[in-house]
Design a protein around this nucleic acid. Sequence first.
DNA 1: TAGGCCATCTGGTCCT
DNA 2: AGGACCAGATGGCCTA
Length: 237
Amino acid sequence: MNVGEEDLFHGSDKRMNELKSIGSDTLIDLTQRYGQAAFTFGAGHGAASPGRYARPGETDFLSSATAKSAESGGEQTSDDDDSFDHLDQRKRGSAFDEDKHTGSLTKKPKEQRSLRLSINARERRRMHDLNDALDGLRSVIPYAHSPSVRKLSKIATLLLAKNYILMQAQALEEMRRLVAYLNQGQTLTSPIPTALAPFGQAAVYPFTGTALATCAEKCTSYTAAPSNLFKHCNDKP
DNA sequence: TAGGCCATCTGGTCCT
DNA sequence: AGGACCAGATGGCCTA
């Protein structure tokens, strides 16, 4: 299944709509919630909010583990995480509890239960991997990585990352325009009119408006540029 | 206390 | 058949 933006917001409410409409210049809601230092590539203002997500599941998890390991001795699959299952079921009133109410659990073959626990463990591991990846993403996008600042939520992380990528792309584009402008300036016999805006000039930046121009096409036109900006394209023709 | 965010369980679907 | 992925449901924690 494709997890597009629409999917991200399928259960959207007002807050979701706010987040969805976030642009690189309007991150007000996020800045208020997560502290500003972070949004250096957006509109920056607001104070860092105290408190921080304590990863509820994490503390929960640890306590679960200890409590559980002491009491369980039940079925164990090959995965260590399975040790969390019993307490989680108790605590959350999962379907296992419902089954108990209906008496269906006791009738389930032990293999089925074991299989269920195994599937649960796999799913848990998968979600942990996903969270690790999100942590990795948080670590590379600019926001206030401080204990006093609440950790970015998942949705905020994704939106911020998206905007960050867009901003980086825009910055790169502007840099290329600047380099092109400077290169052309070196060959000009007449001084550049001060009224001429350096950016957005088709004469200066031939690819303006040519959305179909590939990165390689653009970069190969500027191989003489005194910059490493295009190195990646030169390295990979 | 309500709302936001989260972890987990669960059943369904698709893929290998 | 087994694993990966997904979305709904549920309940806990935290903050305003």
